[in-house]
Design a protein around this nucleic acid. Structure first.
Lengths: 215, 215
DNA sequence: CATGCGCCCATGTGATCACAAATCGCGCGC
DNA sequence: GCGCGCGATTTGTGATCACATGGGCGCATG
């Protein structure tokens, strides 16, 4: 229909839509319970229903969105039980990823993690929920990328995705006013090469936030 | 096999296709590297490309199928590294699911698990790879259903799905001639209410098969 | 004023078509 | 005999359309 501009990278329409929505969901930019329609998204992104349908169904398959019995797609409103489960999964998988990253975590990586942590603190200072969530996840992902475990990383990212919409609610409910102190413990354990300490730091960092919401 | 109940619900075409393919993949009925085309599947199931595309993309999103850069869809040929990762994920998550199921595992459940195990032994005797894989997974799923943890169960099922096509290859390579002896250990631990023993039995049962292939 | 009923529009589903790109095979040339 | 290139066919992508359904809103009725 409207293929006019020269595109630097030829990315399929449904894929752009998917990536955009995925990021919005993971970063908590969409409120729980929000409805998404095929024609609405299509019009918004200048495409037809077909790519919109693909993007939505893909996100539904990953658990990022909920599909009602009539086919309506909304962001999920998680029950406390489900939040507890997802937190438990994070607590199981993320220490393993951190542990696998540890042997490959050199100074350059630790410096980058520190920088992300600084940006995270700035987001806290500015009360910017989206930036807080984004930098927080970026901290973890940057570390886990070193684990060279793409399948595990993919699993943990789909779990982050499922938690996305409630993360925002969690942030406002907790009225966070300090950056996660466990990030510093993670960095310390990385520097010291302390594998059990690293596992513990990651596990507590992951659990502490979610525990408040579920409890 | 276990679903006898009348299904008055009119299931959408793409969903039937999805379920059929998903089961075939998880049970190892499709060989690794096999290609699936939209028009081919559509003709095979008497539908157009649209439902076929949805089913395929959904399976791709779950990691059950691979999507080449040109959009071709095939069953994955897993690298040893990926198999090791998926095995590690099973070893992390499944003991947790078993542990959560333990308090609710009454005699009726243990009896049903025993029956499934018997069917599994018959599949071994008949050298029926698909039946072996199916009963093996049914053993685990029946146990984990008692954990009342749908999110965890969903995650572990997508991991089974990813391992599906290589399970078949694994089976023929190992020339299995006995049912998994760890299933008996799992049952014993369940009867004794031995939580550490159960975790260990599940972990070893899950790991032992995959370790041979990856190693 | 409350409640239930019915109609209309919004929305998902699936089919079909036009198009582009990739793939395969055949034939030509070396 | 072998390799390269070109063309036909296969295949994915996206748009559009017809259709069924479900939800929402207003109107009528008790």
């Amino acid at each position: 229909m409207t293929t006019i501009s020269t595109r630097p990278i030829e990315t399929a329409a449904h894929d752009r839509l998917y990536r955009t929505l995925r990021q919005q969901i993971m970063h908590g930019e969409l409120m729980p319970g929000q409805a998404l329609t095929l024609r609405g998204l299509g019009k918004q992104f200048g495409v037809s229903m077909t790519p919109a349908r693909e993007a939505l169904r893909r996100l539904v398959a990953e658990g990022a969105l909920m599909l009602s019995s009539s086919g309506r797609v909304t962001t999920p409103e998680l029950s406390n039980e489900r939040i507890e489960e997802l937190a438990a999964l994070r607590a199981l998988i993320e220490p393993e990823l951190a542990s696998r990253a540890l042997p490959r975590a050199h100074l350059a990586l630790i410096d980058r993690l520190s920088a992300i942590n600084t940006a995270n603190a700035e987001a806290v200072a500015k009360q910017d929920a989206v930036a807080y969530i984004r930098t927080n996840l970026e901290f973890h992902r940057t570390l886990y990328l070193r684990a060279q475990a793409p399948a595990m990383l993919a699993v943990i990212e789909t779990i982050w995705l499922q938690l996305g919409p409630t993360m925002r609610a969690l942030y406002t409910k907790l009225r966070r006013n300090e950056p996660p102190r466990h990030h510093r413990m993670i960095l310390a354990a990385l520097r010291a090469g302390d594998e059990p300490g690293l596992r513990l730091a990651v596990r507590t960092d992951v659990t502490q936030g979610l525990r408040h919401l579920a409890g």
